[in-house]
Amino acid sequence: MILVDGQPQDTVSALDRGLLYGDGLFETIRFAGDAAPLWSRHMQRLALGCERLGLPAADPVLLWREAQAARGDMTHAVVRITLTRGVGTRGYAMPALPQVARIVAAFPMPALDAALYRDGVRLHLCETRLAEQPRLAGIKHLNRLEQVLARAEWSDPSIAEGLLCDMRGHAVSATAANLFAVIGGVPVTPALERCGVAGVLRAALLEALPRLEVRDLPLHECLAADELFLSSSVRGILPVQAVGDTVFAPGPVTRAMQAHWRGLGFPMEQA
């Protein structure tokens, strides 16, 4: 089901600023039964995004009620919440009193191949680079053209994701997941102050991983890591099997984080 401003429908105005300018935010939230284990973290990031973009703060209680209504009787679902600045006058200037458009859509949880959690996924090293914009870094704004262009770089079904770097040659993330490396036994995840999305599962892992370093991760250092894995609030923890011709194997940190994911309340998908 799709709700627009609380009503069952699937259309918005052609003059909506989310459509015209990417002026808005979204969250993609996995439900396991009646629970959404990372809900509070999604709401925290949404609140940060509203503050950054100057949008009126969203009401988490209302969003929860609408997410449950949209989900209906789906046992396992993915709910996308989209907020836009709504309809305004022509041009980039923000409306003085924005009428935020609220779109809540639920979809069945896609099938996940347990072998990928056991053996890992292959990554394409993307030519598309992430531009630096600190004011937008971290939040999940509606403009995802960099990710769209990066995802268009491969069509091989055996490649599950792409590795994105910034303009300085630092590894940042996958197209739809955060990146973690284990280097000399120490977990490392790229700093996201200049570009990239600060994932909610990434935030949970920052609290769970001892001796974690958050810093720039040059590509050559990333490709020499002992382990690589991806984190996604929908897909969980995915080991990286290869980046191009560079091969990796799932290691103890990756397996521990998969166990942590299950401990958060998500089902086990490992083979």
Rank of each mutant, 00 (worst) to 15 (best):
P218W: 04
S231V: 00
T175Y: 02
G185E: 11
L163P: 08
L219H: 04
A225H: 01
S158I: 00
L230P: 07
V172C: 07
I183N: 00
V182H: 03
P157S: 10
G236H: 06
A160F: 02
R168A: 15
S233Q: 09
L205D: 01
L205E: 00
L192M: 12
A208Y: 12
F248V: 05
R194N: 13
G162S: 10
G184R: 09
V214L: 10
P190H: 09
L219K: 05
L228V: 13
G169Y: 07
F248K: 03
C195L: 08
D245Q: 15
G184Q: 13
A191Q: 13
G196F: 01
V188N: 00
V234G: 10
P190T: 06
V243M: 12
V247L: 14
L164W: 03
L179A: 08
C222D: 07
V240W: 07
E227H: 03
R215Y: 01
S231Y: 02
V197R: 01
G169L: 10
L142A: 14
A208P: 12
C222W: 01
V186M: 14
F229V: 09
T175S: 12
L142H: 14
N143L: 14
I237P: 04
G185R: 01
P190C: 10
E146R: 07
L164H: 09
L230F: 12
L228W: 08
V172M: 13
P210G: 13
V200F: 09
C222M: 15
A224Q: 14
M167T: 14
V182D: 07
L164F: 06
F229W: 13
A191E: 15
L163E: 02
V188M: 01
L163T: 03
I237Y: 02
L145P: 12
L145V: 14
A160K: 00
I139S: 15
L149F: 14
P190V: 05
T246H: 13
R202P: 02
T189L: 00
E146A: 11
A174G: 15
F229C: 08
R194Y: 12
E153A: 06
V186R: 15
F229G: 07
